[in-house]
Computed example of a mutant assay.
Amino acid sequence: MQPFGLGRDTAAQLLITAGDKPARLRSEAAFAALAGACPVPASSGKTNRHRLNRAGDRQANSALYHVVIVWIRYDQSTRDYVERRTEEGKTKMDTIRCLKRYLVRQLYPVTCRSLAGRTLTSNT
């Protein structure tokens, strides 16, 4: 079972990121933070919003971005979601941030299964 739009290059990059630090994959939220796809509060005054975390692996974040752009371009349900969020007043970048987080939720179990047999060794 593979999400639509996830190619060999993007899957490889996400597995490299996760496999580089398998001890950090305690939860789905930790995987999102590792890939730089977790929301960070960016509220000020009367506005209540989030922005994408600038920390994490930039190549993994780029891989997530490319999958989400393919979804927006070719998947009708994603286009409907983007239209609905735009009507709610969300910007396109806010919608992409939400879609990246959704993608991480789908990829976390698959990634954990892929890394299940890997033994942890230290590089010292």
Rank of each mutant, 00 (worst) to 15 (best):
M1C: 03
P3E: 02
F4K: 05
F4A: 04
F4M: 01
G7N: 08
G7W: 05
G7A: 06
G7V: 01
G7M: 03
A12V: 02
A12E: 11
A12Y: 01
Q13L: 13
L14C: 05
L15P: 02
I16V: 12
I16F: 11
T17H: 02
T17L: 10
T17S: 15
A18G: 05
A18E: 03
A18H: 05
D20A: 14
P22E: 03
A23H: 08
R24N: 05
R26N: 06
R26I: 03
S27W: 12
S27N: 14
S27C: 13
A29W: 06
A29D: 11
F31S: 14
A32T: 01
A33S: 15
A33C: 14
L34E: 06
L34Q: 08
G36H: 04
G36L: 06
A37L: 10
P39N: 04
P41H: 01
A42F: 04
S44L: 13
G45C: 12
G45D: 08
K46H: 07
T47K: 07
N48V: 15
N48K: 15
R49M: 12
R49A: 09
R51Y: 02
R51P: 07
R51A: 10
L52K: 04
N53I: 00
R54Y: 03
R54M: 04
A55K: 09
G56K: 10
G56D: 09
Q59L: 12
Q59K: 12
Q59N: 09
N61R: 14
N61I: 01
N61C: 12
S62F: 06
A63I: 06
L64F: 14
Y65V: 01
Y65W: 13
H66L: 15
H66Y: 11
V67M: 06
V67I: 11
V68T: 12
V68I: 09
I69R: 15
I69W: 10
V70M: 09
W71S: 02
W71E: 04
R73H: 11
D75Y: 10
D75K: 14
Q76Y: 08
S77P: 00
T78D: 01
R79E: 09
D80S: 13
D80G: 05
Y81V: 11
Y81E: 05
V82D: 04
V82G: 05
E83V: 07
E83D: 08
R84C: 04
T86R: 14
E87D: 08
E87I: 07
E88A: 15
G89K: 03
G89F: 03
K90N: 06
T91I: 10
K92M: 03
K92G: 01
D94R: 05
I96T: 06
I96K: 10
R97G: 13
C98W: 07
K100V: 02
K100H: 02
K100N: 04
R101Y: 14
Y102A: 12
Y102Q: 12
L103C: 13
R105I: 06
Y108L: 00
P109G: 02
P109N: 00
T111Y: 00
T111I: 14
T111D: 06
S114T: 08
S114L: 12
A116T: 11
A116F: 09
G117A: 11
G117T: 07
R118T: 08
S122W: 09
T124W: 01
T124I: 04
